[in-house]
Write a protein that binds this DNA or RNA. Structure first.
Length: 876
RNA sequence: GGGCUCUUAGCUCAGCUGGUUCAGAGCACCUGCCUUACAAGCAGGGGGUCACUGGUUCGAAUCCAGUAGGGCCCACCA
């Protein structure tokens, strides 16, 4: 049977995924084992796999696969998010393509379209995760708008309302005129924008004076209801109590005084537009000003816009400034950069708008969530630095606007029965609502038809914040087996940009609703960027197609590429070369398999070198394994991978296999062979979380397996840390080997030309390594001698001096030079050490151990100098 | 404006409570090799005043202060 010399990922990956699925290895049910649970950060149901998902989900899969190998009951719950605003926007756009406007159809019709669309295209991303190798428990797949999930959301809304934590408020909110909905503060992104500061002149009533006001938004003058000056501002003192005329609409407005005004900024005069600015609204309330809202929902002007009615705010900005200029009321403009709020989803410029919305009180929810992270450490962040960010936000938290003027989502379960502002009830369904309404109104004759349910839906995050609870049905059935077993979950892996949106809120929900943390560890990934540090995004077009990468390099290689440079919390500068590195590694492992697979096994005695090599590798594996476990415990995933990488490539392939490898066409002894297979299996097991397909493929082929055996459910190796002294011994041996190789290269000697190695052995190191050195350095013979050998090339490892007799090829001058250089360095080194030791304060203050070490350094250096001087003498 | 954080080899990063695991790793680079597991490879090698300036200390990449320059988060100055 011939095995291809290149590993072909494409031909095996799908097959193994299918095999794992068919055997139910991803599926988890409660049992006596310790649970290990991850809930996926649910991607948008209409989303497609991008690099961020790949990073994020590879990390989760690495963790979940390792937990499975460690014998835990690993459960990774997948699912998708309904993403109300994003999905609704997509559905609206699609309807538009078909010539249907949202305004023309009913809510029910719209929802029907939306569901249809969701069912057709939704969940593509989950299929893509399978290509990546994600071992999710697909039987548990959830969608945030599944019936039970929605029912959970509604129940929590009612519960919180009844506790008085949810209230309605007429507030200034962030209005997205494109999506025509409000947004929470977190969904607004402030961007620096180059704009203009317009200086507009307002005539003062009854005088021929003018007041000049600086504004970035001239179109809002039509909503002005006051001009504000600073009470101490002498420039305007004479205008106190007077009124000004708003240009164009010629409305008379009061000139008010307030210390809020910054004397230094602009002209020291502020126009007040309570309907369109948070601060102005506050001023308006304080001074009892009229509120004039000049905008429609889509940010065109309404009737207050006069001749601008129906025109967009930005169009009006241009036109109105032109008109003002014509009227001679636009004194000047100057360039000005300010931060403009934009919608995270639609990128539209946010319009502050006054409206009736639902809010969730956050202060009581926040406190236990702050304590859990910062006091009790019940929830731990990796990396820790995000705890500061978290604290900052949590301590300044504001009430959460949870209503959205959309249709796609959980409809707010508030039912109105009358015209009064308090004529409503909140209930899980219409029937209960009716009962409550009758009670509250005292009107027994109310019928279901008299009830009008609130038109708004809930913010998407109002369902996601329940995710770790609701996926296990912990809200509707709090005592169910799954919830009690899997909750709280173990690890959460997510990007830091949703720390507030999601992570913080889940922690609040966990404590607030269940009195328990939702997860123990939060691993915050970096953001995937391109080589120029730009965030990878669809619009920039700098993001490679995830599936193309997989089909080109294989899922394992892409996973390795991502994991190699993904220190927690550090941005990942993605470069396809990383995938190539992964692919090279896959091939390396594959070829190790090919080598071993090709050996003929015979019952012959084991060689000394093989035995020694195996003992050493055992020790090395144990050490590396403990390093790897330590890395995992600290969530240093890329370090863990690098340790595996070096273990397999350097220690296993480059050293061990070379040590035990039989000569060409020679058989290998059974004992060594069996040991190698076992060690290879251990390597594959450690490698499996990172490269599940390749490792399973080789593991299954390397020896005969029963039907119910699979690497995915094998056991993580456990090794004792004995015989660790073999490691430094081996390092000594490899130094000798490298030195010989070096001389071969310098002297241009063929690799396999047998050489003699003589040495003056001062290190008292066990000579048992000679067999290994002999084999790997291609030596005829290793022999101890009493004195320096003439006519030989020399090198030193620690205090040992080695000679390779090379008559004819010896360049005495070069040899002398080499020794002199080494001598010079060693003397310099000795001098610095002696200087340190001569320093009384050092000797008196430094710990004994450190002083002893320095003394040893000095002694070693002295010995080496002596050796070098002797060699030099013999050459000259 | 407030808070947090970073600056170590060409690139990406390790270096925990100051002292031989202190100057490291991977990649890239350079030089030999198509040596029957692997050229997606093997062997060898060259790269760094640890951002700058002071301080503490017997001793600083590591602790402290300041300077310069990045990054992130928060914040309503028109």
């Amino acid at each position: 049977m011939s095995i291809p010399s290149k590993y072909e990922a494409q031909s095996v990956e799908d097959q193994w995924y299918k095999y794992w699925m068919e055997n139910g290895y991803f599926h988890s049910t409660p049992d006596s084992r310790e649970p290990y649970t991850i809930v996926i950060p649910p991607p948008n149901v209409t989303g497609v796999l991008h690099m961020g998902h790949m990073l994020n989900n590879t990390l989760q899969d690495v963790l979940i696969r390792r937990a499975r190998l460690l014998g835990k009951n690993a459960c990774w719950v997948p699912g998708t998010d309904h993403a109300s605003i994003a999905t609704e926007a997509k559905v609206v756009a699609r309807l538009k393509e078909r010539g249907i406007a949202k305004s023309e159809i009913s809510r029910d019709e719209f929802l029907e379209y939306a569901w249809q669309w969701k069912n057709e295209y939704g969940g593509v991303i989950l299929e893509q995760l399978k290509k990546l190798g994600c071992s999710c428990d697909w039987d548990r797949t959830k969608f945030t708008m599944d019936d039970d999930m929605s029912a959970s959301v509604i129940r929590i809304f009612v519960e919180l309302y009844n506790k008085g934590m949810i209230y309605r408020g007429y507030r200034m909110v962030n209005w997205d005129p494109e999506a025509r909905t409000t947004l929470s503060d977190e969904e607004v992104i402030y961007e620096e924008q180059q704009g203009l500061l317009y200086y507009i002149s307002y005539p003062v009533e009854g005088t021929d004076e003018h007041l000049v006001v600086a504004t970035t938004r001239p179109e809002t003058i039509l909503g002005d209801t006051a001009i504000c000056i600073h009470p101490q501002d002498e420039r305007f003192a004479h205008l106190k109590g007077k009124r000004a005329i708003v240009p164009i609409c010629n409305r008379s407005i009061p000139i008010i005084e307030d210390e809020y005004v910054d004397l230094e900024f602009g002209t020291g005069c502020l126009k007040v537009t309570p309907a369109h600015d948070e601060n102005d609204k506050a001023l308006g309330e304080k001074h009892k000003l009229e509120i004039i809202d000049i905008f429609n929902a889509n940010a065109t002007l309404n009737t207050y816009g006069l001749h601008y009615e129906g025109k967009d705010r930005f169009v009006v900005r241009k036109e109105i400034s032109a008109e003002l200029k014509e009227l001679g009321l636009l004194k000047k403009t100057e360039p000005y950069t300010n931060k403009v709020g934009t919608s995270e989803r639609t990128k539209a410029v946010i319009e502050p708008r006054l409206s009736e919305q639902w809010f969730l009180k956050m202060d009581t929810l926040a406190q236990p969530a702050i304590d859990a992270v910062l006091q009790t450490d019940e929830v731990k962040f990796f990396p820790k630095k995000f705890e500061n960010t978290y604290r900052h936000w949590m301590e300044n938290i504001r009430d959460w606007n949870i209503s959205r003027q959309l249709w796609w989502g959980q409809r707010i379960p508030a039912y109105y029965y009358g015209k009064g502002s308090q004529d409503y009830v909140v209930a899980e369904d219409a029937l209960q609502a009716l009962e409550l309404a009758r009670e509250k109104s005292g009107n027994d004759k109310l019928k279901e038809i008299d009830l009008r349910q609130d038109e708004d839906v809930l913010d998407t995050w109002f369902s996601s914040w329940l995710w770790p609870i609701s996926v296990f049905d912990g809200i509707l059935e709090p005592e169910n087996k799954d919830f009690k077993y899997y909750y709280p979950t173990s690890d959460l892996v997510t990007a830091p940009d949703i720390l507030f949106f999601w992570v913080a809120r889940m922690i609040m929900a966990g404590y607030g609703l269940k009195g328990q943390k939702p997860f123990e560890h939060v691993y915050l990934t970096g953001i995937v960027r391109d080589k120029q540090r730009r965030k990878m995004s669809k619009s920039l077009g700098n993001s490679p197609d995830a599936l193309e990468l997989i089909s080109h390099y294989g899922a394992d290689s892409v996973r390795v590429g991502l994991m190699l440079s993904s220190a927690a919390g550090n941005d990942l500068l993605f470069d396809e070369a990383l995938c190539q590195q992964g692919k090279n590694f896959a091939n390396k492992v594959w070829n190790a398999f090919r080598l071993i697979q090709g050996w003929e096994v015979k019952d012959i005695p084991q060689s000394e070198s093989a035995q020694l090599g195996l003992e050493w590798y055992q020790a090395k594996l144990a050490k590396t394994l403990s390093d790897i476990n330590d890395h995992f415990n600290k969530y240093r995933i890329s370090d863990a991978l690098m340790s595996v990488y070096k273990l397999v490539w350097d220690d296993f392939c480059s050293w061990l296999l070379e040590i035990v490898k039989p000569a060409y066409q020679q058989p290998i002894d059974r004992k060594t062979y069996n040991a190698i297979i076992k060690l290879f299996e251990a390597n594959l097991c450690i490698l499996h979380p990172f490269m599940p397909f390749l490792s399973e493929e080789i593991w299954q082929r390397i020896r005969k397996r029963n039907k119910d055996e699979a690497l995915i459910v094998a056991s993580w190796p456990e090794l004792s840390l004995e015989d660790q002294e073999l490691i430094p011994e081996f390092e000594f041996a490899t130094s000798v080997i490298s030195a010989v190789r070096n001389i071969r290269k310098e002297k241009n000697l063929a690799n396999k030309e047998p050489l003699d190695l003589l040495l003056i052995d001062k290190e008292k190191l066990s000579q048992r390594w000679d067999v290994v050195i002999k084999k790997l350095a291609h030596l005829k013979n290793i022999e101890s001698v009493g004195a320096a050998v003439e006519g030989a090339v020399t090198f030193r490892v620690k205090s040992n001096e080695y000679f390779i007799p090379l008559e004819g090829k010896l360049d005495t001058e070069a040899e002398i030079k080499k020794i002199e250089e080494e001598l010079q360095y060693t003397r310099g080194f000795l001098k610095s050490v002696e200087k340190k030791l001569a320093n009384e304060r050092f000797v008196n203050n430094a710990p004994e151990k450190v002083v002893a070490l320095e003394q040893k350094k000095a002694a070693d250096a002295l010995a080496k100098i002596e050796t070098l001087e002797k060699s030099l003498a013999s050459l000259e």
